[in-house]
């Protein structure tokens, strides 16, 4: 039995189809990533799973409990960290933690071991009001509050949005340690680079799950060869690449352009020569491994073409 089972769940707000026949099967003790851009339906799915929203159709179970019928039992055993910082800004760190511990019928002292590792980092600021914490500390506090009652399933809705790179890295290390305790973690993020940190992921786009699997498996399915092209000036180079019809797709990706080509059509050196000949004298082309974002772009495009 999976820790979280989602079976053909749909949700609609007025004319906007937030989720369309979404199915997921999340195993106990894994970190499962829900990857997709803003507005893809991640938060709606989270709210259905934490029993805050009712699905229009379909079923979902958390640890075998139905999210509609057994919502009270589910509420006792899950931890939830909503998308935006949702603690009391006018209460101190310690007051917030105490409050949420009591709401779940426990105390901070009883579960100190469970949160010690994270809480010890913010404990020096225990008398500071939550509203005056930095983004990274707020996130740690929110995680402590979600963990204080020893949930067996943890729902983290975009936990790293608005958090700096160092804190994000620390945060993921914390998630790994929480997983070691046997907690199932469902995490959503708009950051594609965080996808590879999950055990398994689902890519979600406009309410549809477009791919599910381990990050490695999804990357392995990438059907094209991928070249990294860099050169100056960058934008005219991108326009030049897009004009060529022997290349499948071009995306700007940081300082590089990612160019997808059908296998066996053109080699990197060949492309480099042609680009240099077109006036971009410093251009370099080298073959690269696709990442999750490349896969997402590819799959999203396919999905759009299907529709």
């Amino acid at each position: 039995m999976g820790a979280i089972e989602v079976d053909e769940v749909s949700k609609r707000y007025g004319t906007c189809q937030a989720l369309e026949r979404v199915s997921l099967d999340i195993r106990a003790g894994e970190i499962y990533g829900l990857i997709g851009p803003d507005g893809a339906g991640k938060t709606s799915l989270f709210r259905i799973l934490v029993t805050l929203l009712l699905p229009d159709s379909g079923h979902a179970r958390v640890e075998g409990l139905d999210v509609v019928k057994d919502f009270m039992a589910i509420r006792r055993r899950i931890g939830y960290m909503p998308g935006r910082f949702s603690l009391y800004q006018d209460l101190t760190v310690a007051e917030n933690l105490d409050f949420f511990a009591t709401m779940f019928g426990t105390t901070v002292a009883d579960n100190y071991e469970n949160i010690r590792e994270i809480y010890s980092q913010i404990e020096p600021f225990r008398d500071r009001r939550a509203g005056k914490l930095s983004g990274g500390m707020k996130q740690k506090l929110a995680l402590c509050c979600a963990l204080v009652h020893r949930p067996t399933v943890l729902f983290l809705d975009e936990p790293t949005t608005g958090v700096d790179a160092v804190s994000r890295k620390e945060f993921w290390n914390m998630l790994y340690r929480i997983r070691e305790a046997g907690v199932t973690i469902l995490v959503s993020t708009p950051y594609m680079d965080e996808a590879s940190l999950c055990d398994r992921i689902s890519l979600i786009q406009q309410g549809h799950i477009i791919e599910t699997g381990t990050p490695a498996a999804i990357v392995a399915q990438y059907p094209h060869r991928l070249f990294g092209v860099s050169g100056h000036p960058a934008y005219p180079l991108l326009k030049y690449l897009r004009r060529r019809n022997d290349l499948l797709r071009c995306f700007s990706f940081g300082s590089e352009h990612h160019v997808a080509v059908a296998p066996g059509t053109i080699a990197p050196d060949e492309l480099q020569t042609q680009i240099r000949a077109a006036g971009f004298s410093d251009a370099t082309v080298h073959e690269i491994e696709p990442n999750i974002e490349d896969c997402f772009m590819e799959l999203a495009k396919k999905e759009r073409q299907k529709a």
């Binding site: 029993t51 009270m72 006792r76 939830y80 949702s86 709401m103």
Partner: peptide, 13 residues
């Protein structure tokens, strides 16, 4: 507004 009601509703209270 602050989203804390979401947390309160998810709690067993």
């Amino acid at each position: 507004e602050s989203g804390t009601l979401e947390l309160l509703l998810v709690s067993p209270i």
